[in-house]
Amino acid sequence: MSRPVIAVTTSRRSGWRIFPLVALNVWIGGGRAVRWGAGRPSDLDTVSGVIVGGGDDIAPDLYGGAPVTKARLDPDRDALERQIVEACLSRGIPLLGICRGSQMLNVALGGTLDQDAYATFTRSKKVYTILPKKDVRVESNTRLQEITGTAPMKVNALHSQAVDRLGQGLRVAARDTGGMIQGVERIADPFALGVQWHPEHLFYAHRQRAIFRALVTAAKARDDGRAQNPDVSADAAYS
């Protein structure tokens, strides 16, 4: 059986080292990854799913935020990824957002970001590491709960911003113990999930691998002309 092709957007600076790790997770989940980015070819007709990867902050003018002087921004990547997210949702292409990608999913749907999330959520544990040191609670009755279960999980964290006001059609899928949003998901098809942490670094954990498998399952469903979210739910229950 052929593997669905999953596009992975990356930054110009760090994509060379991040993409192989994401590609490994996609392969374990049953897909095959190709790297996209600003200045690289990107044709949605050639893929079955998309991962919007992590990296630099999103320019605040995309969601009405305050101008910042210290943040590292990439306007070309912002424009590309926003266009990709909007096109995926309009064309029924499943999508996974990782860290920045989760935020872009929210922004593309009209949501906003908290630019200094740890100042707002003072009870949230502030960590900046690829090691699993942040406690996250998955919300009940969500698709993420079907994929990973509701038991608390330890994840990593490499962010200072977080989702604030939800974009249209999204719901909260996970929060940390201080209440900060750590996961969002689209309620209806196509499958679209965003996680604030980096599951690609946690490939040794079954629940983190399941996130990539869910995207691949949704991609296969789309290729076969089936509804995506029911297949994701059924595959999660089977596994």
Score class of each variant (00 low, 15 high):
Gly97Cys: 09
Arg82Lys: 14
Ile84Met: 06
Lys125Ala: 13
Gly101Ile: 04
Thr142Ser: 09
Gln145Lys: 03
Ile84His: 08
Glu86His: 13
Gly101Asp: 04
Asp114Glu: 13
Asn141Val: 06
Glu146Gln: 12
Ile93Asp: 01
Glu81Met: 12
Thr120Pro: 03
Asp116Gly: 03
Met104Gly: 01
Glu86Phe: 08
Pro132Val: 04
Ser90Glu: 08
Thr112Leu: 05
Tyr118Val: 03
Phe121Glu: 02
Ala119Val: 10
Asn141Trp: 11
Asn106Leu: 05
Asp135Lys: 15
Ile130Ser: 11
Gly110Arg: 09
Arg137Cys: 11
Arg137Lys: 07
Leu144Asp: 00
Thr122Ile: 15
Lys134Gln: 05
Ile130Thr: 15
Cys99Lys: 09
Leu80Arg: 08
Gly92Asp: 05
Arg143His: 11
Gly111Phe: 08
Val136Asp: 10
Val136His: 12
Ile93Thr: 00
Met104Ser: 01
Lys126Met: 10
Gly110Tyr: 05
Asp116Asn: 14
Met104Leu: 07
Ala117Thr: 00
Leu144Asn: 00
Lys126Gly: 04
Met104Ile: 05
Ile98Lys: 04
Leu144Val: 00
Val85Cys: 08
Leu105Asp: 11
Asp135Pro: 05
Lys133Gly: 10
Gln115Lys: 03
Ser102Glu: 07
Leu113Ile: 13
Cys99Met: 09
Asp114Pro: 11
Cys99Phe: 13
Pro132Lys: 13
Arg82Met: 13
Met104Cys: 00
Leu113Gly: 10
Lys126Thr: 06
Leu95Ala: 08
Ile147Trp: 07
Arg137Leu: 10
Asp114Gly: 08
Arg82Asn: 11
Arg82Val: 07
Ala117His: 00
Thr122Glu: 04
Val127Asp: 15
Gly110Ala: 01
Tyr128Asp: 09
Ala119Ile: 13
Asn141Cys: 06
Val85Ala: 08
Gly101Arg: 06
Val107Ile: 05
Asp116Leu: 04
Ile93Asn: 01
Arg91Phe: 04
Asn106His: 14
Asp114Gln: 09
Glu81Trp: 15
Leu89Cys: 00
Asp114Asn: 10
Arg100Gln: 07
Ile130Leu: 15
Ser102Ala: 14
Glu146His: 12
Ser102Phe: 13
Gln115Arg: 11
Lys133Trp: 07
Arg143Ser: 12
Ile84Asp: 13
Glu139Tyr: 00
Met104Gln: 01
Ser90Thr: 06
Glu86Gln: 11
Arg91Asp: 01
Tyr118Leu: 05
Val85Glu: 08
